[in-house]
Simulated assay, not measured.
Amino acid sequence: MVFGVILAGGIGSRMGNVEKPKQYLNVGGKPIILHTLEKFYVNSKFEKLIVLCPSQWINHTKNLVKKNFNDDSKIVVIEGGSTRNETIMNSIRYIEKEYGLDDDTIIVTHDSVRPFLTYRIIEDNIRYAQEYGACDTVIPASDTIVESVGHEVISNIPDRSVMYQGQTPQSFKAKKLKELYEGLTEEEKEILTDACKIFVIKGQDVHLVEGEVFNIKITYPYDLRVAETLIKGEDK
C-alpha cells in the first residue's frame, strides 16, 4: 500500500509576525495546505493521505478537509511530533496500527508548504521508493555552494556539478525507515536534518528523483508573493 504523508507540523517562525502557521495562510484565495493536498488527492494510488499538524490545529485542519474534499474519508488528520522525523514516525505508527506494516508499505512524505509539486514527481517517488527503498526529490545546484565551518570565513567550495538542492517528496519503504530510525543513537538523531539522512547514516542508498525549480517551499514573506504569481500562471 502507498500512503501520502503531509508534514504540517511547523509554526512558520521565519514567516514573521503572522497569526497562524504558514501552511494555513492563503495563496490564490485558499490555504496553502489545501493546494498541496489537492495534488495528492487526485492520485488514485494512495490508500490514505495522512496530515500531521500541531495539536491545537487538528480541528481546524479537519474542518478544512471536510469543507473542501468530496471524499474526506481518504484524508486523516493526526498530531505531529516534536521534530520532523518524529512526525514521520507518528505517521508510520498510525499506518502500523490501522493497516499493518509490511516490506511493500510505501510512504511519500511531503512539506505542506510545497504546493507546486507535479503528478510526475509524485509518480516517480512512488516508483523509485518501490524499486530502491528510498528516494529524494532534488534539483541541480544552480549557485556555487560555499562551506564555512566557523561561519566567518570560507572553509571549502565544493564542486557544484555534484551538488544538489533537496526538495520534497522524500519517499521510503516505511518498515525499513522505522527499523533504521529505531537503530540510531541519540547523538545520531540530534544531527538529523531530514529522513533521508537516516538512510545515509546507516550506509543505505537513496535514489535521486528529478524535481522542478518551481517546486518551492513557502518559507518567507517573499515566497508568498512568488507563490501568488505561480498560482496565477497555473490558472491560465
Rank of each mutant, 00 (worst) to 15 (best):
E19A: 09
I11W: 01
P31W: 06
N43C: 04
N17S: 08
Y119E: 14
S73L: 15
P158F: 13
Y99H: 10
K236S: 12
V108D: 00
V76G: 12
K20E: 10
I216D: 04
Y132R: 10
I58K: 08
I75F: 14
S155E: 04
M1R: 11
S142K: 13
Y132G: 07
D102H: 06
G150R: 13
R225P: 00
H110C: 02
N156K: 09
K67P: 14
I191V: 03
T168E: 03
R14L: 06
L224A: 01
K39L: 02
V209F: 10
G81H: 00
T193V: 00
L117T: 11
L192V: 00
Y24I: 01
L25C: 07
N70A: 15
I88N: 12
M15Q: 01
P140I: 15
E228A: 02
I32C: 02
N43A: 03
E182P: 07
E182Y: 11
D235K: 11
K74Y: 13
S161R: 06
E188L: 00
T118E: 08
E47S: 15
Q204T: 04
L177H: 08
V77T: 05
I33Y: 05
A141Q: 13
E98R: 10
R225F: 05
E152H: 09
P221A: 07
E152P: 00
T61H: 03
L224N: 02
K236Q: 09
G166D: 04
E187R: 14
L180N: 13
I95F: 06
N63D: 07
E86W: 08
L208W: 12
K48N: 12
K97G: 11
F214P: 00
N215W: 06
L224C: 04
K176L: 12
V113T: 07
L184W: 12
K97H: 13
S148D: 07
T219D: 15
I218P: 02
Y119W: 14
F116S: 09
W57R: 06
S13P: 03
G81N: 01
K176Q: 14
K45C: 14
L37N: 04
T109S: 04
G211W: 09
I126F: 12
T109C: 06
F40I: 00
P140V: 15
N125I: 15
K178T: 14
